Amino acid sequence: MKRAKITIVGAGNVGATCAHWCAAAELGDIVLLDIPGEMADMPRGKALDLMESSPIFGFDSNIIGTNDYADTAGSDVVVITAGIPRKPGMSRDDLLATNAKIMGLVCEQVKATSPEAVVIVVSNPLDAMVQRALQVTGFPPARVIGQAGVLDTARYRSFLAMELGVSVEDVSALLMGGHGDTMVPLASCTSVGGIPVQQLVPQDRLDEIIDRARKGGAEIVGLLKTGSAYYAPAGATAQMVEAIIRDKKRLIPCAAYCDKEYGVGGFYVGVPVVLGTGGVEKIVEIDLNDSEKAAFQKSVDAVKELVETMATLV
């Protein structure tokens, strides 16, 4: 059986760590790509180092590093992490103009070399970047997806598990909305071992945990000083890659193109989806209470404003 081919554009911390997770799970052969220049050999060095770990961990994925999109031809999944990282004091929105240009250049190449691929966008500001990827590739919206909800939910679940002293495996949660401070963790869809979270955590404390989840990326940036998070973002991306490559039909939150769903009207926003070999195979619409609807609409409005601003810059 032919192995899947996974391309990761951007060999920085997120891209290289995503390659690590994907290789360890034997999801397929991996191409790690970055731009030519002073650090042109960097993706080859990281790919070789990772390949040399394969006898230790027993995975048979073939991993190459390159600066040439020709090596990525025929990829089943393309992960795009390329872009400048966030630095202390910067918001995701500050990255908009530069990363929109980078996304356009990358997607022109992806369109030419892997026209049947499912594209997972990780670059920030996420909701605008995935919209840009759709515009440039011209792919069906189901095959262009943003990675945000898996990461944000993981942070939320981690904080709840830490608060309650329980296994993260027993915490089930869902978030919606844009990737940023307006994301909407849904307490009504959060449980621990099947027990509604409101029965275990007082509302004021739950609100504090939700706020920490919203600002989870900024917290990491503040601690690292010279970079942004990469272990959890890469792990979240690898989980999405696995759902696609292995057609797992995972019901997870992703930034998906919503036309009529949730009344969004043609924008990417975090919603629960069924993720399989075709990409977003279904957007799951759930009933929101009044406060959740209001918070979700606020988040959607922030995404629309971001996309409209991007349109004036590219």
Rank of each mutant, 00 (worst) to 15 (best):
E308F: 00
E261G: 02
S53V: 04
V121C: 12
M90T: 07
Q239I: 05
E26D: 15
V264N: 01
K282L: 12
L151G: 08
L306R: 14
G266C: 03
M162T: 14
A161C: 11
V197L: 07
L50F: 05
D181M: 12
G104N: 13
D68R: 07
A256K: 01
R212Y: 13
L174E: 09
K304H: 04
K111C: 09
P196H: 05
M183A: 13
L96P: 00
G10W: 05
Q131S: 14
D290M: 01
I245H: 02
S91K: 14
I56D: 04
S228T: 13
S75W: 01
T113V: 15
V144A: 09
Q109I: 06
A11V: 05
G193S: 12
G146K: 04
V118W: 11
V122W: 02
V280D: 01
K298H: 08
V79F: 11
L313C: 07
A128K: 09
G149H: 04
R214N: 02
E219W: 04
D41K: 11
C258E: 00
A154L: 11
P85F: 07
Y230W: 15
L96V: 01
L105Y: 09
P141C: 04
L134N: 10
G235E: 09
D152L: 06
E52M: 10
G45R: 13
R212E: 15
A19Q: 13
A82I: 02
K293F: 00
E242P: 02
N124D: 10
Q131H: 13
H179N: 14
E308W: 01
T182I: 00
I102L: 04
A23I: 01
Y262N: 01
M176N: 01
I84A: 14
E292A: 08
D60E: 10
G216L: 01
M183G: 09
R86Q: 15
P36I: 03
P253L: 03
V106E: 08
E38R: 14
H179Q: 07
T312L: 14
E281I: 09
V119S: 05
I245P: 06
F267C: 00
D68L: 05
R205I: 14
V136S: 13
E261V: 00
R214V: 08
L251W: 03
K111H: 12
M176D: 01
F139V: 00
